[in-house]
Structure formats: structure tokens, C-alpha cells
């Protein structure tokens, strides 16, 4: 078992964003997390990456209790994430951005080695030709790809993707999904992909899916089965669908 969340709860004042959540992720798995707006998905990600500390419960990564570990200590263990709205280091070059991941992630690379790794991942992701461009000048899609490359350069064992595919056109979505699947196989990364709407994409990618609703796990299981479950459809549409 790679990642285990036990009874994790996070409150913000009176609001319970994540409510007694149990979750398991296996090594090399392709997991989808799905849920409408406000269901607690983003808080869940922040709890796993360490931006938030849970009020109750435990988070265990590779058998180690990381509940209270700060984010920068989780990264070297093999945890990486992307953000829904990309957060590039704007005035650095694309290459440097990705190199940061290589230097401070699990690889702990030196500067020169990190730049080489950056080149490698930029090629994999397909934006090698942009490597010397200032990060803030990229298009939103290019920024997402750069952030993916940076996360991959951290050599993660668990990669959290936050609405990576939102706003992309269908052709790009297919390309990216294939890319992720390939890298996942090659480097044995467990990939968790969080989406709100793109059900077709999740179907293509995830073997298993967890549906969240109001901070709780509503349902969990094989993708197609879960996504067609009446309860899930009701939560999303607020009613029955013919």
C-alpha cells in the first residue's frame, strides 16, 4: 500500500471540508477522484501534499506516518502534485522551472544533472523547444505541460494531478492521457487524477474511482460502474436522469 488515509478530518471554522475520510492508493495505480464543486477534493489534495495538517486522523505513506510532515519533507519521499491553475516560477526559464523539481524532489539532483533531467522530461512532455523561454510567457496549456514535467522530474511515487485536463481540447486530452499512461508504466508512478466534470477522460484513464460528496467518500469502485451509479448521477445533477 502506497498511501493510506485513516479517518482524516479537516475543518475550517464551522465548515467540515473533509469528514472522516478513509482512502487507499496502491503502488502504480491509476485512481480517479471525482466530485462536484465543494466536495472537498482540493482540501484532500492539500492534506496529502502537506499544505494542510488534518485535525483528526492519520496519513501514512509507504508505512511512514506523514500526518504532521511539512510539504517540503514529503516531496523527497516521492510525492508530487500539479495545480489546477498552474504556478510557474514566472521569471525563470522553462528549463529552470523543471530543474527545480529535479533538484528538490526525490532525485536530489545537482544543478547540472537537474538541467539534464529537465531536458529529458521536457522532451517527454513535448515542449522541449520552449525550454529557454521565460515561464510567464507561456500559454495556459504550455504552462500545464511544464508543471507536469516539473512534477515528473521530482521522480514521484505518487503523482497528484489537479484538473490537469480542464480546458483542453479533446485531441490534446487523448494525447496527454496516453503520455501519462506511458510514463506511469515506465516509472511505476501511482497517479491520482482529480476531475470535476471530465468523466470521459476519467473513464479512459482510471481503473478505479472515488466519488466525494460534502467531504465524505460517497462511493468507490471500478470506474464505469461507479460513474453510472444512480446515487452519483443524482449528486451531480440533483435529480434523476432518464
Amino acid at each position: 500500500m502506497l498511501l493510506k488515509l485513516e479517518n482524516v478530518t479537516k475543518r475550517f471554522g464551522g465548515l467540515v471540508a473533509v469528514n472522516k475520510l478513509d482512502l487507499e492508493v496502491e503502488e502504480g495505480e491509476a485512481l480517479g477522484i471525482v466530485g462536484p464543486n465543494g466536495s472537498g477534493k482540493t482540501t484532500l489534495y492539500n492534506l496529502i501534499s502537506g499544505v494542510y495538517i488534518p485535525d483528526e486522523g492519520k496519513i501514512i505513506f509507504e508505512g511512514k506516518d506523514i500526518t504532521n510532515l511539512p510539504p517540503h519533507k514529503r516531496a523527497p519521499l516521492g510525492l508530487a502534485r500539479t495545480f489546477q491553475i498552474p504556478r510557474p516560477f514566472g521569471s525563470a526559464s522553462v528549463r529552470e522551472n523543471v530543474a527545480i523539481g529535479a533538484m528538490f524532489g526525490r532525485a536530489h539532483a545537482g544543478v547540472d544533472e537537474a538541467l539534464e533531467m529537465a531536458d529529458e522530461y521536457l522532451k517527454i512532455v513535448g515542449i522541449y523547444e520552449l525550454r529557454n523561454k521565460e515561464a510567464k510567457l507561456l500559454t495556459p496549456l504550455e504552462k500545464k505541460l511544464m508543471e507536469l514535467a516539473r512534477a515528473l522530474a521530482m521522480k514521484p511515487k505518487l503523482l497528484l494531478l489537479d484538473e490537469l485536463l480542464a480546458g483542453m481540447n479533446p485531441k490534446d486530452i487523448d494525447k496527454i492521457i496516453d503520455l501519462i499512461k506511458r510514463v506511469k508504466e515506465e516509472e511505476n508512478i501511482a497517479v491520482v487524477s482529480m476531475v470535476e466534470h471530465l468523466m470521459h477522460a476519467i473513464t479512459k484513464f482510471a481503473e478505479r474511482v472515488v466519488v466525494m460528496h460534502q467531504g465524505r467518500k460517497l462511493l468507490e469502485g471500478p470506474t464505469i460502474e461507479v460513474l453510472n451509479h444512480p446515487e452519483v448521477i443524482e449528486v451531480y445533477l440533483g435529480g434523476r436522469v432518464v
Binding site: A92, A114, R150
Partner: peptide
């Protein structure tokens, strides 16, 4: 490495944290 870490923190503290920078 440290120099780049400092520049990263200036740009985006949380992003730097998530990348593993103390």
C-alpha cells in the same frame, strides 16, 4: 542550487514548498 531555491521562494512560496524546498 540554493540560489535557485531562494528565487523560487520569492516567486511562489507555496509552489516552492510543494516542490520540496524548505
Amino acid at each position: 542550487k540554493l540560489g535557485k531555491a531562494i528565487r523560487a521562494v520569492v516567486e511562489d512560496k507555496e509552489g516552492a514548498m510543494v516542490c520540496g524546498i524548505n
